[in-house]
Simulated assay, not measured.
Amino acid sequence: MPAGRAYGQGMNIIIAILVIWAVLAVLGFVVKGLLWLAIIALVLFAATVVWGMIKRRSTT
């Protein structure tokens, strides 16, 4: 598998994870009882962004 294809696949996974975290954050803020879900989702969203940036920088 070419390196470019593997890089694109990895970024697709990171983007999918970011979308999931964003949906969970919105759901947590909409449903008051799930505020803890929003907090966890926001923390995981930020961690995924940082991880993606580090992976992107190391492959280029």
Rank of each mutant, 00 (worst) to 15 (best):
L24N: 15
I14A: 06
W36L: 06
V26L: 13
L34C: 03
I40Y: 13
A47G: 15
A47M: 08
L37Y: 07
L27T: 07
I14T: 01
L34T: 07
V23A: 06
R5H: 07
A25Y: 02
A38W: 03
M53H: 11
A22K: 03
G8F: 05
V31A: 01
V19W: 14
Q9E: 15
I20C: 09
L27P: 11
T59L: 15
Q9V: 11
V49R: 01
A47Y: 11
V50C: 09
G8H: 02
I15L: 12
I40M: 04
A6N: 08
V50F: 07
G52H: 03
G4M: 05
I20L: 14
L34A: 04
A38F: 03
G28V: 01
A41S: 09
A38S: 03
W21V: 00
M11W: 08
A25Q: 08
V31L: 02
Q9L: 15
T48L: 06
V30C: 09
V50E: 08
L44M: 05
G33S: 00
V19C: 13
W51M: 15
L34Y: 07
A6H: 03
L18T: 03
I20M: 15
G10N: 01
R5M: 00
A6E: 01
T60V: 15
L27M: 14
A46I: 14
A3M: 05
Q9H: 13
L24V: 14
L37W: 00
V50R: 11
R57Y: 07
R57T: 08
M53Q: 12
W51H: 15
A38Y: 08
A25T: 03
F29R: 14
